[in-house]
Design a protein around this nucleic acid. Structure first.
Lengths: 117, 117
DNA sequence: CATAGTATCTTGTAAAACTAGGTGTTTTTT
DNA sequence: AAAAAACACCTAGTTTTACAAGATACTATG
């Protein structure tokens, strides 16, 4: 035991692992209420082990907007920098349902594989 | 309800979703016994909703081999085409443990997000 | 007044899943 | 017996996307 772990491999894999999951989690977070980009980053960093960067989330949100899964609206603040709030559309909610079923089914499959020693 | 689902988006997302997860599942599958590539594909297609192609798994297995997480060995068959069996190394097992903890922690986080209406 | 934090965005790069092929053998179908 | 399908491996090129590294601009703290 105490094998040497190739941290480069793990880091690369963790980064890899986010792909796809990110969109899913963003939509899940938006389900409860509209959020702005910077807020989503800090929520993500706080609640999950996925440390995502700004260069990741803004293009992603734009993709979701182009697909009409979210809408965005600028909110002028009394003080501070204006925020762009993203809100789930009905289409987004419907897509999230499909994605959720897919993820849940996959998790079940993985559980089954894990248990089948 | 009965929103129109953008199948193009879902298809792209599903494909996206595999990234990273694939390596994890391959290693999980190899944990129980050595397998050959074609076998891993059919196991995958049978047990999960991830339909992976041959052009995906062979480069992936070579990557895992280069990282020394698996070894490979040709097996001459009494009948049929020779198979290249892949086997998890001790290093691979150790890496799988790290990956497993990461995936489990992430799943917990997602559960928490899902429950926080 | 400089620094750290808030908030948005863009460009270029690297990684990897997939498409679309290729090779050759064995089994099944017609 | 010939054709088709399945088995089993592989590679080159395309596309997608997370990230690094930057730009911009406002606010609060020391």
């Amino acid at each position: 035991m105490n094998e040497e772990i190739n941290l480069y491999f793990i880091t690369k894999w963790k980064s890899q692992f986010k792909k796809g999951l990110l969109e899913y989690i963003i939509l899940l977070l938006l389900r409860s209420r509209p959020c702005y980009g910077y807020e989503l980053i800090s929520e993500m960093n706080q609640f999950t082990s996925l440390e995502i960067a700004e260069g990741t989330i803004y293009p992603l949100l734009n993709r979701l907007k182009k697909e009409k899964l979210v809408t965005s609206e600028w909110a002028e603040m009394d003080t501070g920098i204006p925020r762009k709030y993203y809100k789930l559309t009905e289409e987004g909610t419907a897509h999230l349902m499909v994605m959720r079923e897919y993820v849940d089914a996959l998790n079940l499959s993985i559980e089954r594989i894990k248990e089948s020693v």
